[in-house]
Amino acid sequence: MAERESRTGGSIDVGGRYDPIEVLGILAAALFWGWLGLRWLNDWFGGLFVREGQAFLPPSTFEFLPALAFAVEFAPELAAGVWLTVLLTIVGIALGFPIAIVLAGARVYGRTTRWVALGYIELVRGTPLLAQLFVLYYGLGLSSFIRELPGVGTVSVIPEQAVWVAMIGFTINSAAYQAEYLRGAIESVDPGQLRAARAIGLSQIDGIRYVVLPQALRYAIPGWTNELIYLIKYSSLAAFITVPELFNRASSIASENFRYLALFSLAGLFYLALVLTATNLTSRLEDRVAIPGLARRDERLRERSQ
């Protein structure tokens, strides 16, 4: 019991003492996300604290360390791009998720629908994401349709049309990948449990809903984490349909001052911070929803290798 509590509470508490690395990580995360949050607030409300895109402290403060001064100068503009990177990732994952559940369900349990789902998944997984974005943006005239919708491009908090197209593209794409991770997870739930659910009189759909899915979603977390990490990085492809996200901003600043290495290194640090945050959160989630008595997948593997 004590063991379970310490696991669900995160792993800060190691035998009553604090793990210094964990504490350091949390401080760094708080600093990073606190700063990002303030940047976003500042820019959304047209310069709440400082002028849009300007550093909170003048870069000249850090003259003694040129690399730091450089980072301080350009980080604010990249931070505005991080917002779009985060937005695209979260929207793609979140909207793709319910679609993925339906697709995975059809793949495993469907008859005709199985082939429809398979066709969709293979089409999306078999073609480049960039090509998909191009088709949506240039080929289908989606952007001119969205531009006509009320508010788009005129109200500042509503993103411009390219962002909408990217969100649609990532949703379509992520749904297919998430569906495959979910399918594997559904298939790893012992089919005897669904049989037992049917044997007490639950319908197939209720058996899936109350017995199979709650377990499959847990088992899907490691694979789903991969999808999240990929999407954070693949969201940079939105740059090619003019979305000013992190990669796009880094490359356009660099095209003016030619400091490609420095800017892409800085952008890389931002991506790294996003990915570390994501993996940390999903790992905590996995701990929190772990079924008592059943070892987590990585724990089982560790035991086997010993």
Partner: peptide, 30 residues
């Protein structure tokens, strides 16, 4: 199936539910 209960060789308990919830699921949902 509600009227004919079945007990399995491999138990087939719902792994994510406590003993109580295993028994409760049918009562609630069926």
């Amino acid at each position: 199936r509600r009227q004919v209960g079945m007990v399995f060789q491999g138990f087939n308990l719902f792994a994510h539910l406590t003993a109580r919830k295993n028994v409760s699921l049918g009562l609630r949902r069926v």
